[in-house]
Design a protein around this nucleic acid. Sequence first.
DNA 1: ATGGTCGCGAGGCGA
Length: 262
Amino acid sequence: MPFTLATWNINSVRLRKGLVAQLMREEGPDVLCLQECKSPVDKIPVEVFQELGYDHMVANGQKGYNGVAILSKLPIQEVGREDFAELGHARHIAGQLENGVTIHNFYVPAGGDKPDREVNVKFGQKLDYLTEMRDWFHANKPEKSILVGDLNIAPEEDDVWSHKQLLKIVSHTPIEVEHLAQVQDAADWVDVTRRDIPEGKLYSWWSYRAKDWDAADKGRRLDHLWATPDIAEACGNSRILRHVRGWEQPSDHAPVFAEVDL
DNA sequence: ATGGTCGCGAGGCGA
């Protein structure tokens, strides 16, 4: 049975529960992975989502910051949550569907402003988080798995509006790109979005600070959807819903979609 | 080089 999967950094699931519901009504992904819920799990407005057929949820939350959740029309059970780099943050949840597909939902640390771990602790934490992700996937080789989330790195030249101007900007520095590549190599993860949309600029995030995000179009592809090789060919029809960034009181991220037909 | 805008939760911190 084919199913549709989406990942979206919602930047407060409580403030934007209406937008989550709108995406559910208009697109109806079977599985919707959220990041930056900024809510304890027991304060996530699950009733709103249940009314739309999303009867299942696995989530890892905390007050005010971070937080990840998987909302699903299909039964899903939690199969783990990791605290990489021992930050004490809610940045990962893993769930398994009844068809055997495991979904890892990540919110990788943003990393602060200065790309230098000597002067910016947060940048070091981001690199350490990625290193521990790599080591964990080496030790726990995933199969029939999908990894999604806000990885806070735009790895390719066409994943940012200006490769040259962003080389020293956190999210596109060579050391971050190398760390992300090592996570990817640890399980031969296939970047499904880029495989399906290989040509041209592709973004999933536009800053709130631009006066006209759409016209300026200074975006970055920070949100990713990866699959292990055993199911990568079953994944396809990737889309990034840019128009969602233009909704009323939007998240600064657009949702990333793919379909999985096992 | 700087500042620009958000959300949380009530003053900065984080993005």
